[in-house]
């Protein structure tokens, strides 16, 4: 297993956000975590990346069988995890090229960095004409592409993406997901956190569903897609109504 999480609990002050969650990530796969606002998805990612001081309170996180909980973020990145945060967080007053070079900060092989720079422009041709422009002047979609490219510049094993579809038009969302697939085909393991359940299930191999700081359901994407609860509560597809033309009872989630 590439990344393994066992029973982690994360607190903000006295509020428990993650309620003992566990999961494991297979190398080479796309894994999606879907859930509503406030389910704890971003908190989980921040916990993995070591971005929350002194957390997780309990539990174990291992990457390639080495513990990474309570390890400094920059060391975690060095082990091969790259992070594309929610809301992109590009360096607005650095140029696009400088942003990409910051992404390659942990690397020393100049040739590799140069060839990866070229590769990024193949993934994201839109960035090509903007290399010397300040990142803050890019559109939202271009900033998202830049954030992904920046993460890939560290030549990671695992890429974690937090809501790459946030605030983008449907067409751009499709393009981003297409590129995510491509990146996966080129050998990167991907952990994807999304609200856009449709797209996320489509693109991934394995799906976890998170509610109130816990995983309530997981399985291969095909299985999850056909799960009745998921269909109704996450995909917005209702089953056929009763013969009289209306639903007689409100469905309850079976996992409660």
């Amino acid at each position: 297993m590439l990344l393994e999480i066992k029973n982690i609990e994360t607190f903000y002050d006295k509020i428990k956000i993650l309620n003992g969650i566990s999961f494991s990530l297979e190398e080479g796969k796309v894994t999606a975590i879907i859930g509503n606002n406030g389910a704890g998805k971003t908190t989980m990612l921040n916990t993995i990346m070591g971005l929350i001081d002194d957390q997780p309170e309990k539990g174990k996180i291992t990457f390639r069988n080495k513990p990474i909980q309570l390890v400094d973020t920059d060391k975690i990145v060095k082990m091969g995890i790259a992070y594309v945060p929610e809301g992109r967080e590009v360096f607005e007053e650095l140029t696009v090229k400088e942003n990409l070079l910051v992404g390659a900060y942990i690397r020393k092989d100049r040739k590799g960095i140069q060839s990866d720079l070229v590769k990024m422009l193949e993934y994201f041709p839109a960035l090509k004409s903007r290399l010397n422009q300040l990142a803050g002047t890019l559109s939202g979609g271009e900033q998202q592409m830049l954030a992904i490219a920046r993460a890939l510049m560290s030549d990671p094993t695992l890429v974690i993406l937090d809501e790459p579809s946030l605030g983008l038009s449907p067409l751009l969302v499709q393009e981003i997901f297409k590129i995510i697939r491509e990146i996966n085909r080129d050998g990167k393991t991907i952990l994807l956190v999304e609200q856009n359940a449709n797209m996320a299930i489509e693109v991934s191999d394995q799906v976890y569903i998170m509610e109130n700081g816990k995983f309530v359901l997981n399985g291969p994407a095909d299985e999850i897609k056909d799960n009745e609860d998921v269909r109704e509560f996450y995909l917005g597809l209702k089953e056929v109504d009763s013969l009289k033309g209306y639903q007689r009872y409100k469905r309850r989630r079976t996992w409660r």
Binding site: L51, V77, P85
Partner: peptide
Amino acid sequence: LAMRACQQNVGAAMFNGIPA
């Protein structure tokens, strides 16, 4: 470059592997 990155967004600098 690392200094300027930290000046603009310490969090982002950290998850790009910069020891802020």
